[in-house]
Simulated scan of single mutants.
Amino acid sequence: MTFSTEFGWTSAARSDVGCVRLVNEDAVLNSPEQGLWAVADGMGGHAVGDLASRMVIERLTGLSTGGALGNVIAEARDRLLRVNDELRAEAARRQVSRIGSTVVLLAARGGACAYLWAGDSRIYLFRNGRLAQLTRDHSHVEELKARGQLTAEEALHHPAQHLITRAVGALDTLELDESSVALADGDTFLLCSDGLSNEVTEAEMASELAPGNCEAAAQRLLEMALERGGRDNISLVVAHAEDVLGSDRTQVNPTL
């Protein structure tokens, strides 16, 4: 496995209303030329969740992408804080308790990626034949698991499974977590709303991501979630990094 500072990106995105909902309250950003990808999931059951997710993605699409990775993430954070204020004001104007959206953003510069998130939309990394979840859900169930009050198996069927503790627009103060990872040749990232992660297992995700074909993986993962019932909106982005300078290629996850 080689690490480098020059990577080329391919990516593919899908967003579908699913088989049950009438409105798609998800939105996605797929911009490999900018090194930016995001998924936003409007809060189901609340007023105009589609407005919230669309506002989140529109603000992130306008990010300045010429600077250092840390500057990109800092600007993304500032923009999301402003969206939070706007959504709180809009909820007050409409006299509803909240208008909100989860968000997960991945940004790439040189040989690294940084990501930030609020809510239960996720980022996974497939590397060297293994899938790892990079984000930790901001949810009631995840807090119970962290305290040892709930097993992973119990969490799958817990009645509060969809109760999230953070989202853009949910509270007057928005808390965003962030982290970063050094890139390796052949890395493939999956960003998704819970409409995918609740229907498709991690083993199935890994199997579809392994070849490094973004379009094929995105389409097949969407189809699998729909086949399982598509109980929620389903959104995902698959992004694949290729080391354009390195002579070594990881053999487990080869660049196509």
Results as ranks from 00 to 15, higher is better:
G8M: 07
A47K: 13
D248S: 14
S179C: 05
L105A: 07
I164N: 10
I234T: 12
N198D: 06
L131N: 02
E33D: 14
A182Q: 08
P211C: 07
A112G: 10
L87R: 04
R130T: 12
C19Y: 05
E208A: 14
C192Q: 13
E178M: 08
L183C: 04
E75D: 14
M1F: 09
T65F: 13
V141Y: 00
E142S: 09
D248L: 15
E86D: 15
R14D: 09
E199R: 00
R231N: 10
T255N: 15
D41Y: 09
E223W: 07
A112Q: 15
V48H: 12
Q251Y: 10
N71W: 11
L221R: 09
I164A: 07
S180V: 04
A225M: 04
Q34H: 14
A74Q: 12
N128F: 06
M1R: 11
F189R: 06
G42T: 11
L196R: 01
P32H: 06
V238S: 00
F7P: 08
E25S: 09
V252F: 04
E202D: 15
A155Q: 00
V168C: 06
L80F: 09
G119D: 03
W9V: 11
L226D: 06
R231K: 12
F189C: 10
E215N: 11
A132S: 11
S15V: 12
D187F: 01
L150H: 03
M55G: 08
P211I: 09
A12I: 01
A167D: 02
L106P: 03
G66C: 08
R77S: 13
D41I: 01
S101G: 10
G35R: 07
G119R: 08
D137P: 00
L69F: 07
P254T: 04
D185A: 12
N30T: 03
P159H: 01
G119F: 08
S235P: 04
E199I: 02
L163E: 12
A74T: 13
W9I: 12
N71H: 14
L190C: 04
T250F: 09
H158E: 01
I57N: 06
E204W: 02
F3N: 09
A91Q: 05
V200K: 03
S247I: 05
V104Y: 01
V103M: 01
M55S: 09
V141L: 00
R82P: 01
E199W: 02
G186Y: 01
Q95Y: 07
M1P: 09
Q149N: 05
T102L: 12
A160M: 14
G129N: 06
V72I: 15
T135Y: 06
R54P: 08
D172W: 01
A92L: 13
C113L: 14
S15E: 11
R54L: 10
D26C: 03
G66T: 11
E215I: 08
L106T: 02
E242F: 13
D137L: 09
G8F: 07
A210K: 15
M224L: 14
V72K: 15
Q133H: 06
T201E: 12
V237C: 05
